[in-house]
């Protein structure tokens, strides 16, 4: 089966006064239809930029993007507009991603109007249909965003993203701004919609328990590069890259009796501007040796489990 989305060696660099910022560097993966890939990493690791570059909100610097097997990397103008309908995004902050001067109804209606595919009465009908799909009461149609709570606003963002029946949706931290009880409501909604509509998700988040719950596969990013990639279960059961291990052990566990020994990383994420060749995590890595400062290759350690670390086998023995 052709994957819905495939990226090969995708790069996105930003010029800055101090040099080139390597936000996304040589990232490759595929997502099959109806599946979810989770992208995790700390702030500034390039996970949001990756999502935005795939759906052409940023122009890529290098590499290729395929949608349903077609290379869409270089599309422009009308062709790009057509492809964009199939790829949508749900933003992190439901407080700033909705137009404060538009009613809920007109925000949800907008994609239909822009697409010019429907008559006025069809648009009306479809808007109401969408509102009930994401669980917004019809009585709220003329409300403004400031009158809604975070959970409802995020539902509006979801409705807007799904209006033109996309195949692929980038969910950029869609529940990070919500309280746990509301977060669970929205996560269940996203899952229900995925099953009903066969949606393919890329789920960007820094919350490891959310990503574990929603993803089929997970990519762990560090400073623009994917350091580890495998099935969600496998990643939590058998993390191999030292960064993944540190990330997982830093999560405060709700189990009060089983206090696991935590590996606390020293130092902070370094700058992605003009990075040196070699492993970008080496500066903080407790296992770093001379060889880590040479360019690293991705290795398939076990079927479907990819790690970019030259010492992965030695570390396992330690």
């Amino acid at each position: 089966m052709t994957p819905v989305i495939e990226v090969k060696n995708l790069k996105k660099y930003f010029p800055t006064p101090h040099g080139t910022l390597h936000a996304v560097d040589n990232v490759s993966f595929k997502i099959e239809k109806g599946k979810t890939i989770g992208v995790v990493g700390e702030s500034g690791c390039g996970k949001s930029t990756l999502g935005r570059t795939i759906i052409h909100l940023h122009e890529s610097t290098g590499g290729q993007i395929f949608l349903d097997g077609n290379d869409i990397t270089k599309l422009k103008g009308k062709e790009l507009k057509k492809v964009r309908e199939k790829m949508q995004i749900i933003f992190q902050d439901p407080y700033s991603s909705l137009d404060p001067r538009k009613t809920i109804e007109s925000t949800i209606r907008e994609p239909f109007v822009v697409s010019k595919r429907y008559s006025k009465s069809e648009i009306e009908e479809k808007t109401l249909e969408l509102m009930s799909l994401v669980g917004i009461d019809e009585r709220l149609r003329r409300s403004y965003p400031h009158e809604l709570d975070g959970g409802r606003r995020q539902r509006v963002g979801i409705a807007r993203a799904l209006a033109l029946e996309p195949e692929f949706v980038v969910c950029d931290e869609p529940v990070s701004a919500l309280d746990v009880s509301i977060q669970a409501q929205v996560l269940n909604l996203l899952k229900k919609l995925q099953i009903e509509r066969g949606l393919t998700y890329m789920f960007v988040t820094h919350d490891m328990s959310v990503v574990r719950h929603i993803s089929d596969d997970i990519c762990v990013m560090y400073l623009g590069q994917v350091v580890e990639k495998c099935e969600a279960k496998e990643l939590f059961a058998r993390p191999l890259h030292p960064y993944t291990k540190a990330l997982l052990s830093a999560i405060p566990s709700t189990d009060i009796h089983n206090k696991t020994k935590r590996e606390i990383l020293k130092g902070e994420i370094t700058s992605p501007i003009n990075p040196k060749p070699g492993c970008r995590f080496a500066a903080r890595c407790p296992f770093a040796v001379e060889a880590c400062h040479q360019p690293q290759v991705q290795e398939e350690v076990s079927p479907g489990h990819f790690v970019t670390c030259c010492r992965v086998h030695e570390i396992q023995k330690i």
Partner: peptide
Amino acid sequence: IGLFGAIPSMSGDEMWLHPIDGLP
């Protein structure tokens, strides 16, 4: 009890989470 139930567990494979219905 509802709050604990709404947190996605790190080990479980539950298909659905158990949100608390409604709003504060």
